[in-house]
């Protein structure tokens, strides 16, 4: 306390950037602030973040934002209207449904797919990788062999086969994508664990009598998180594209759900004359997956300067 009274009060920035943090909280906030400064210096990454914030807002307030129903159209008076028609900003599809409203509601499906796949695949990969890396020996060999086997598979085709067997639908699409996308996470988690395993602080924890489970869960896994988050973010774009591809082939979300890939498929028939029906959802997919890619690149540069080649 005496220190604080002797010197002039620190500005918030100085408090954050202090190289002698007084508490864990200050250290953590300081680190987060440094990361944020590196991240926000990258304009494209901020654009990516804004796109995704926009996506979340649109998904959350779809009911308020959408001017029309996403599933019930005006078959009599509003079929295949071009963009800019009265009341239909992006035009309508063959069933007289407002494309803008369908896109707005479709953002929920996109977000749901991405989040669900991440929630399923990332922890699986993390546990497999951290366990393999920490245990070593034959456990490592077996787990990594399985991982590599999955890595060598054609992901999209395998996902197709899964969905074909399970039956089309958005839940099955999520399961199929998750099954094929965990292996890279396991590889990353294992690589990180291997570098951590012999570090002094892990040895210290071990000396204090922590069980292997506790070491892996509390001390190893958290350290894998940042590289894992980067990878997951970069994979999101691929997940969106795969989900849209499944939708396009009629294996993902079923009509009348406003899934973007399925919307492209249904607009395909009119592509020559009513180009907007297929074009608009494609732009939506492009923008969102671009957002994830930009954010992922930015996160990688901010969290892991080694990788960015600076």
């Amino acid at each position: 306390m005496s220190l604080a009274t002797q010197t002039r009060p620190l500005t918030r920035r100085e408090w954050l950037l202090s190289d002698r943090p007084q508490s864990r909280l200050q250290a953590r906030l300081g680190r987060a602030y440094m990361t944020w400064r590196r991240f926000s210096a990258n304009r494209l990454a901020v654009v990516g973040l804004l796109i995704l914030l926009g996506l979340c807002i649109v998904a959350a307030f779809a009911d308020l934002l959408a001017p029309h129903s996403p599933v019930i159209g005006n078959l009599a008076g509003a079929r295949l209207l071009p963009p800019g028609s009265e009341g239909y900003l992006l035009g309508t599809d063959d069933q007289g449904r407002d494309i803008l409203s369908r896109l707005i509601y479709g953002s929920r499906l996109t977000l749901a797919v991405v989040v669900l796949v991440a929630i399923i695949a990332a922890p699986v990969g993390l546990v497999v990788g951290a366990a393999a890396g920490y245990a070593g020996g034959w456990i490592d060999a077996v787990l990594m062999r399985i991982t590599d086997i999955f890595l060598a598979f054609p992901k999209l085709v395998l996902a197709l086969a899964f969905v074909a067997a399970l039956g089309p639908g958005i839940e099955n699409a999520v399961i199929a994508i998750a099954i094929t996308s965990w292996p890279p996470y396991a590889r990353i988690a294992r690589a990180e664990t291997l570098t951590l395993r012999n570090s002094d602080y892990i040895a210290a924890v071990r000396l204090m009598g922590a069980s292997p489970t506790r070491i892996v869960l509390r001390h190893v896994m958290p350290m894998c998180m940042s590289s894992l988050i980067v990878r997951v973010t970069l994979d999101m774009a691929g997940i969106i594209l795969t989900a849209a591809g499944l939708g396009f082939l009629g294996l993902g979300a079923q009509p009348p759900l406003p899934e973007w890939g399925a919307m492209i498929a249904s607009g395909r028939r009119f592509i020559l004359d009513q180009w907007w029906v297929a074009t608009m959802p494609g732009i939506a997919i492009l923008v969102v997956s671009l957002g994830f890619n930009l954010l992922g690149d930015g996160l990688r540069d901010a969290l892991d300067p080694r990788e960015s080649g600076q």
Binding site: A237, F248, I264, A278, T279, L290
Partner: peptide, 14 residues
């Protein structure tokens, strides 16, 4: 980046 982000079937249609 665009190549990474664009749905191939959509670009093919266009």
């Amino acid at each position: 980046l665009v190549g990474y982000s664009v749905p191939i079937f959509w670009l093919a249609l266009l």
